[in-house]
């Protein structure tokens, strides 16, 4: 399992940040992603692999209105 914004979701071998976003249906583009407190750059979303037990924060910035 990994933790994403406080919720537990199943971990899969080879799971990337992009996979996490798709699993959670996080489609909003203006997000900041941290894995165990470390910022992951947008360019790494498709290559950075999360590990079992990782704590992922997907911080959505505000917009609109």
């Amino acid at each position: 399992m990994i933790e994403v914004n406080g919720e537990h979701i199943p971990w899969k071998e080879g799971m990337t940040i992009q996979d996490v976003l798709e699993t959670c249906r996080y489609t909003y583009p203006m997000v900041i992603i941290k894995v165990n407190g470390k910022i992951i750059k947008r360019a790494q979303y498709e290559t950075y692999k999360v590990k079992d037990g990782d704590v992922v924060q997907v911080i959505h910035l505000m917009s609109g209105g």
């Binding site: 914004n5 406080g6 996080y26 909003y28 924060q57 997907v58 911080i59 959505h60 910035l61 505000m62 609109g64 209105g65």
Partner: peptide, 16 residues
């Protein structure tokens, strides 16, 4: 009117 505060992501999604 949402122009005072739009906090849904911070609160509901980010749990900040």
């Amino acid at each position: 009117q949402h122009d005072e505060a739009w906090l849904i992501f911070m609160d509901m999604v980010n749990k900040q």
